[in-house]
Design a protein around this nucleic acid. Structure first.
Length: 258
DNA sequence: TAAACTTAGACCTTTACGTCA
DNA sequence: AGTGACGTAAAGGTCTAAGTT
């Protein structure tokens, strides 16, 4: 996999978006553009872009959590036990957390509390998001029931997930641009070096085995073999590559010639 | 049929909380 | 133990499309 492959991948990402945006260029509204990016219901699969979420590891659900989460967890509100659950990841802790949750009914009218979705819930939501970046009301309801969450929570999760996805998409596009610039710079440099090699080769052909310049007037970088004339007369730079070892003078600072 | 109104859904911004270093 | 950074759930506001009157 070469650099082109990398760039193509990145470009593919960018082009994918461009195609979407192209379709909606007439609409003249930022929200419509965003809607087109996700192409409601089934038309767009975020997973195609392979933008792995930072918490993809949530997909790894151990047996303990599956067992614990099977306990019909109500809409989850986290408390201090969440940290311990992360540290230990054991069944007891998960149970403790689930038991500490309060029901939806309890939450009505109370100031908002931040819940922490279980890994299984996150994993399922993530899977669904890979299939559809948006949900129909039916899908939302079904998913909410499956996860023992309120439909509103599922809705909010998808909204936030879409926002995160777009952020990553933008970041990927930025990275793509940087890679492209890097590639162009390297291509330029490569061309320049190729040209230099050709020039040196031609010098070898036109001035074989003949050198009027004293050895002490030339220096050569041991690493890149570029020759630098340190003499006073610019016309004395003729040399033969085949005899380069004769002209090498000690480099006090090899990189200086490069 | 067109205009006004309503509603649902999506996005954006902000807030608040949990976690981690 | 205290703190700042970061991730993310949630709330509130705005906008738009579709449906209704």
């Amino acid at each position: 996999m070469g650099f082109d492959d990398i760039c193509n991948t990145a470009l593919g990402l960018g082009l994918g978006c461009l195609v979407k945006q192209e379709n909606i260029s007439q609409l003249d509204h930022h929200q419509q553009k965003k809607k087109q990016l996700f192409l409601k219901h089934d038309h767009f699969s975020p997973s195609l872009l392979s933008l792995a979420p930072s918490y993809d590891t949530c997909a790894i659900i151990d047996a303990h959590q599956q067992q614990a989460s099977s306990l019909s967890a109500a809409s989850s509100f986290s408390n201090s036990s969440v940290k311990r659950e992360r540290d230990l990841g054991g069944e007891e802790v998960e149970l403790e957390r689930i038991c500490s949750r309060v029901s939806d009914e309890d939450d009505e009218g109370s100031p908002r509390k931040k819940l922490r979705l279980t890994r299984e819930q996150s994993s399922i939501l993530e899977d669904k998001f890979k299939q559809h970046s948006t949900l129909s009301p039916k899908q939302k309801q079904a998913l909410a029931e499956e996860l023992n969450l309120r439909p509103r929570q599922v809705e909010v999760w998808f909204q936030n997930r879409r926002a995160r996805f777009l952020t990553k998409l933008k970041q990927t596009e930025v990275n793509c641009e940087l890679l492209k610039k890097c590639y162009e710079t390297l291509t330029e440099e490569n061309k320049r070096l190729q040209k230099e090699v050709e020039e040196l080769k031609s010098l070898k052909v036109t001035a074989p085995c003949y050198m009027q310049v004293g050895a002490a007037t030339l220096t050569m970088c041991p690493s890149c073999e570029r020759v630098d004339n340190v003499g006073e007369n610019p016309s004395t730079t003729l040399f033969t590559l085949g005899q380069k070892s004769h002209f090498i003078t000690p480099f006090t600072h090899p990189s200086a010639a490069c």
